[in-house]
Each structure stands twice: as C-alpha cells, then as structure tokens.
C-alpha cells in the first residue's frame, strides 16, 4: 500500500489541524498564566477569604478528569450562563486554560515562596510598597525559578488538547480520525499524527529552554546555564 502520496494529499488538511491544536495550547497557556499568577499571589499574599477561594478553585480543577471538565462546561455550565453559542474551539481552549491555571498557580506559588523572605524585607526597608516589592523584586526572581517547572505545562497541555476531540473541536486528532475514516488507512495515519505531536513537543520545549538560557542570571540556577 502506497501511503506516502495519500499522506501528501491530505497534508494541507493535517496542517490545519496543527494550527488548531497550537491555537488551543497557546490560548490555554496564556489563560493559565493570566489567571494562575494572580491566583498564586492571592494564595501567598492574600487575606484568608482569597486564599480559600483559590484553594477551592485549585481543588476543583485538579480534582476532575479533563474529559469530565470538558463535558461539564460544554453541555452544562456555558449554556447555563448564556454562553451556549460559543464554539467548541473556544470552550476547549478555555477549559484547558482554566484547568492549566490551577496547575500553574501552584508552580508560581512554589516559586514565589522559594524567594528568600529577606528580599521582601530589604525592599520594604527601602520604602517600597508591598506591591512595588512584589513587582520589582519578588516576581522577577520567582518567574526565573518557575520557568523550568512551568515549561512542563507545555507538553502537558499539548497532549491534553487532544481530548477536545470529544466535544468536536476540529484539532489535530479530529482531523486525523477523519482522514482515517476517508482513506481506511489506520496505523500510518495515526503514526503521522503522533510524529506531528512529537515534533510540536520538541520544538516548543526547545524554545522554552532557549528562553531559560536568555533570562539566566549568575547564581540563579535555572539549570540551563
């Protein structure tokens, strides 16, 4: 069976799946930082009610399987709050992002807490407000500490994104399945999809390692010196 020409025929279609998958990952990662970082700050510096809310959020999104979360939001929560018209792509990306935020908040929290307490004391002793100290002293250090662990979220979300297949997001795995149905070629097509996932994984991690090196500072072990 001559698979290669068939694969090449379907390549543009596969590529559209790559775009969709990467879109899911980027939105989810971005949302994860946007929500996860304030959540981490709330957990470290916030008053008790804030810490409690964040704790419940993290418990909820880490406690449920990704598939359950997707169905819950797709069939239940979004329609119930009048957002039933949202596309599967948007719902998938948002759910991945909300879930990612829970995990990422804990990566950021650990990093913030591992910045020595003397850094805050020194900053305050110079007359900085707590907010200025967090922004100018704590976060620049915490983000460097967090980056290696945070990088791990990329392959996690990339592989998790395939589950969005279940609510009909037209991402890489959905497209792969459609090609399989059309061509009746199974293993080679799935292998091609697997190869694409591996390449995306490798490329993304390479970029993140590059970033680690770029922001590395003497004595600030990111392990990428």
């Amino acid at each position: 069976m001559d698979v290669l020409p068939i694969l090449i025929d379907w390549l543009p279609y596969l590529l559209s799946g790559i775009v969709s998958t990467l879109g899911l990952v980027l939105v989810a990662l971005g949302l994860g930082v946007l929500l996860g970082l304030p959540m981490a700050l709330g957990q470290v510096y916030g008053a008790r009610p804030i810490r409690w809310v964040v704790g419940v959020y993290v418990w909820f999104f880490r406690g449920l399987p990704i598939l359950v979360l997707l169905f819950l939001f797709w069939f239940g929560i979004f329609p119930a709050i009048g957002l039933g018209h949202l596309s599967a792509f948007v719902v998938g990306a948002v759910v991945l992002g909300l879930r990612g935020a829970a995990y990422q908040s804990q990566i950021f929290r650990g990093a913030i807490q591992s910045v020595g307490e003397g850094q805050m004391i020194a900053a305050r002793s110079l007359g900085m407000s707590r907010l200025t100290a967090i922004r100018s002293v704590i976060l620049p250090q915490a983000m460097r500490i967090a980056l290696p662990g945070w990088s791990n979220e990329y392959p996690n979300i990339l592989t998790d994104s395939a589950v969005c297949y279940a609510i009909g997001v037209v991402e890489l795995l959905t497209i792969t399945s459609r090609i399989v149905t059309q061509t009746h070629i199974t293993i080679p097509i799935y292998l091609a999809a697997a190869g694409i996932f591996i390449v995306l994984n490798y490329g993304g991690l390479k970029l993140l390692h590059g970033l680690e090196k770029r922001i590395a500072i003497p004595g600030f072990g990111t392990g990428a010196m």
């Binding site: 020194a122 620049p140 250090q141 600030f220």
Partner: peptide, 12 residues
C-alpha cells in the same frame, strides 16, 4: 536606611 546581617541584596 537599614543594613542586614545577611545583606539581602536583590539576587536578580
């Protein structure tokens, strides 16, 4: 001003 036993320079 304050100077600390362990310096507390901003490490970054």
């Amino acid at each position: 001003g304050m100077v600390f036993q362990n310096f507390f320079l901003f490490d970054h």
